[in-house]
Design a protein around this nucleic acid. Structure first.
Lengths: 117, 117
DNA sequence: TCAATGTATGAACAAGTATTCATATATTAA
DNA sequence: TTAATATATGAATACTTGTTCATACATTGA
């Protein structure tokens, strides 16, 4: 693994700075509004106001969250007249998103199995 | 896609409850201490005190974070005498973790490329 | 039983964060 | 230029969260 440190105990982890960035990335995914925006944008680009209608939230709240998603490099704006359309800006996003959903589904079916036993 | 809703506009997303759970999952990954614990446990099980030494943090702080990881079903404790060893409890964890690292590395190399231009 | 060790947990505090409100900026049409 | 529309943003507030401190619980050895 690149940029990995090995402790005297033989424990190998990426350097703390990389793990800090990693936590920052997941933090962006770890908010209901933002994950719903990502889920919506998986269908293709969408205007800010359309998003705010779809998620039934104020336009300001959506804009604030889009700014965070933009700063994280997850979405990209495209202006057309007065309207700004946002779209996903990275091919990894859908992978991470689907991986998370797979975990959720796995856990919930596991839970059902345990309840049956 | 299972449990997906289709809006009148034809936008298809999982139901809000699933997305809420998804955000909860990523929230767990979205903390520096917890992601460092996960990174450490990728090397195999580890005792609480060993973790707190390795991460140079108080035992209490580590225990609190382990509780959150436990509640999320990401780690599992194994008691041996007075010592409790924790290990990762899901095969998806490493996938999600690696996906995130791939994104980080992709983004940082992209950044370097942009700086060169 | 008592002391020692490893872990867990409740309370308190500080720091971070999402939303709302008001307002600014940008663009278009009149 | 002015009005209207779409989006962005700063300030304020309520809420959440991570760490520390003190202490409780669990286990082992004497």
């Amino acid at each position: 693994m690149e940029n990995a440190n090995k402790s005297p105990q033989g424990i190998s982890v990426p350097d703390t700075e990389a793990l800090y960035d990693l936590a920052e990335l997941f933090k962006v995914f770890g908010d209901t509004t933002r994950i719903r925006i990502i889920a919506a944008l998986l269908n293709g680009e969408m205007a800010v106001y359309t998003l705010s209608e779809f998620l039934e939230m104020g336009q300001s709240a959506i804009s604030h969250q889009l700014r965070i998603l933009r700063a994280a490099g997850l979405v990209r704006p495209r202006r057309d007249g007065r309207t700004v359309y946002y779209s996903l800006d990275d091919e990894h996003i859908e992978l991470i998103y689907n991986m998370g959903l797979a975990h959720i589904n796995h856990k919930s079916s596991q839970h059902h199995k345990e309840e049956e036993e």
